[in-house]
Design a protein around this nucleic acid. Structure first.
Lengths: 130, 130
DNA sequence: AGAAGACTACGAAGATCTTCGTACGATGCA
DNA sequence: TGCATCGTACGAAGATCTTCGTAGTCTTCT
């Protein structure tokens, strides 16, 4: 199969927009702007411009069949998260994923449920088909 | 105690320099440049400028007692790694550290040893003083 | 001493990111 | 029909990041 075309790593502002789209599903600029206005005081045309640029970059897809264009994330949330984690692992941990995991775990009190979930994942990895 | 003064998140180029300093210990610009030259074709004065700016930002400390100034990372590697992980967790995972851990683990075949290490850490977290 | 080399400081260019103002077309309503 | 509103497109400004050239100082070697 063809490799997934690589989108550039989203910037901070772009990631905020992606998170809204992942959370709400496809949205107009207006919807994203209303959603983010409380925490980020940014003009409407700024948001529009950002989302246009993100579309050019391949981070978003745009449906222009309506007057108000409808945008959605091109990649699923988990795919982008995986890329970001992989990127951080290579930039800051020399590629050692388990070091990142240890750092993340040791800096956070996880609940018993979360610990159990992680254990289960480890079990699957060990017992798995390789 | 006074809170640790926050340094800005290092950029990609800055993180590369930090990694050299963490690995080799305090270095001159020349040493860092020699170390990075193979993988990054960048001029000497570029490296110098970057490290001067990093010093201004508080990412590096500089010893000027010699003609060739000696730079070192202000934060320990693990501290910066923790900050970067925390930052990514908040920007991309809505603060859910365990989601990042799961993503990291599921996208990597860990060795038996690494899995064992993580299990041990989980044991400590559960049995810990809490 | 004088030339060559190494070092720091600094200004500025080019790229990217974020922001907004303005222009202009669509829609909807008095 | 005419006007206010909402939408997109786009240029450009300001901030930051990365890059390098040049100038000036200090050291070393012949």
């Amino acid at each position: 199969m063809p490799p997934t075309p690589q989108s550039p790593r989203p910037t901070d502002a772009e990631l905020e927009i992606l998170r809204v789209l992942w959370s709400l599903g496809p949205c107009t600029v207006r919807q994203v702007h209303d959603e983010l206005s409380p925490k980020r005081d940014v003009g409407y045309t700024t948001m529009l411009k950002l989302m246009q640029i993100m579309t050019d970059k391949g981070l978003l897809l745009r449906n222009e069949s309506q007057r108000s264009h409808v945008y959605r994330a091109r990649q699923k949330e988990t795919v982008t998260q995986k890329q970001l984690v992989k990127d951080l692992v290579s930039r800051a941990f020399g590629g050692a994923t388990e070091k990142l995991v240890m750092q993340a775990l040791s800096s956070k009190k996880a609940t018993a449920q979360e610990i159990a979930d992680i254990r289960k994942l480890l079990d699957e990895m060990e017992g798995g088909v390789q």
